[in-house]
Design a protein around this nucleic acid. Structure first.
Lengths: 231, 231
DNA sequence: GCACAAAACGAACGTTCGTGCTATATTGGC
DNA sequence: GCCAATATAGCACGAACGTTCGTTTTGTGC
């Protein structure tokens, strides 16, 4: 049923529909990051796009499918905005640092209206079993794995102390980032980004070998590091 | 309107109602920690308590009042379960550590079905202005202030390096704790508690003076610290 | 220009939500 | 044991939810 046995001949055409679908999802991601994936209502989304409820609904078979599509769209944005730029940098401490730094910028810069989409989605669905929860958990595991791998690569390159546990460091960095997101969303506290940044940098510096620490930004005055960055 | 101009004469009596109200809120807190404060529906809460919707509703003037009362009830539980036990310990590094340790235990032990009530509530309401959001933000600020003050006291007692920024340390500890909560809720990963614990302890030890470090648990083998703790 | 499928629409469905009204138990003070 | 206040129940409401249906518009291949 639904969109399963697609349309053998058509399919290739799919002229206009794909574009509107993209447009819908773009809006959906932003709405959901602020109001939650459950608070993302079809009526609201319809009026926001200027479409009718039923017209919009036809693009997805059910609300759950809409939620899953929204999660997927958010993942692509995340990859484009965070992962890709960080992977443009060479392996090692440099990339590890870039991953964290860009993440903080991506939240601070308001790529999503409600802060990190996945932090919000994870909190919302962590007690709500189902495909949405599963997919969100999977995606966040991907992110943690990327962080962990970056640590391992930095160690392999001789830039990071081999005694640090990659999973432990990934956990800590992720926690600090999400902590900054939390403080910013709840209090509008931009200093939280500096705090997370400082904490991560401090840890990176402490465990870096001489060759690794050249990949880190130069140490400015202890206080408030790079406050001028995005001002 | 609602419960504003209360009941001048009565009020003092308030015989039976208070008990049922307590009972309702106890259930409400647990439901809300799992399904969210918005997902906490009056009908659901009524059937869960065996009351009628309207009977239950009469205890609170509106859903928002119910949410606020639920938040307050959660705060009291948090104080009883975390703050009070930690304040039974003497000021200084010992209390600071106890605050973090008990927090982790309180989440791990499942005091609330859905993990830390306030992490969930903050994530849910951070983009939803109103009294509920304000109150939640206020309560979390209290918590951060308690952490910060514990750091200051430890410094005043000469147990902690005076150069560390109390707000920074409070931010980091809080982030690590919430990170552990996140990992546990999403993956059931109990190791996350060990990770947060290790990270916090490591930081405490590094900044402790000789007299301060005696207040910390003895350093067991680097690996997995106190895995046996609650098993 | 005709035919046909994709895309969008408008109206309605059954449910559930929060919230009022009104009536009936239950209770404490005299 | 009565009275007033409190506590709970019953019922109905308007709105919003996700979803379905039949119809109309739109766009292209022949």
């Amino acid at each position: 049923m639904s969109v399963e046995g697609i349309r053998p001949a058509a399919r290739a055409r799919k002229a206009h529909g794909e574009r509107t679908r993209r447009g819908i999802l773009e809006l959906a991601v932003n709405l959901a990051s602020a109001e939650g994936l459950e608070g993302l209502t079809i009526g609201r989304l319809a009026s926001e796009t200027g479409m009718s409820k039923s017209g919009l609904f036809a693009h997805f078979g059910s609300k759950e499918d809409l939620q899953l599509a929204t999660v997927e769209a958010a993942r692509e944005i995340f990859i484009r905005e965070v992962i890709r730029p960080a992977f443009a940098v060479e392996q090692g401490v440099a990339r590890l640092w870039k991953l964290c730094d860009i993440w903080l910028q991506y939240v601070r810069g308001g790529v999503f209206r409600g802060g990190c989409f996945f932090s919000a989605a994870a909190a919302e669905f962590d007690s709500r079993p189902g495909p949405v929860r599963d997919r969100v958990a999977e995606i966040m595991k991907e992110w943690l794995a990327i962080l962990r791998r970056a640590v391992v690569e930095a160690q392999a390159a001789g830039q990071l102390d081999r005694r640090v546990d990659p999973a432990q460091l990934a956990f800590e960095f992720n926690a600090l980032e999400m902590g900054a997101n939390w403080a910013f969303q709840l209090y509008g506290d931009k200093q939280a980004f500096t705090r997370a940044r400082d904490a991560i940098l401090e840890r990176l510096r402490r465990h870096s070998t001489k060759s690794g620490s050249t990949a880190l930004p130069s140490q400015k005055g202890k206080r408030s590091g790079r406050a001028a960055q995005a001002k």
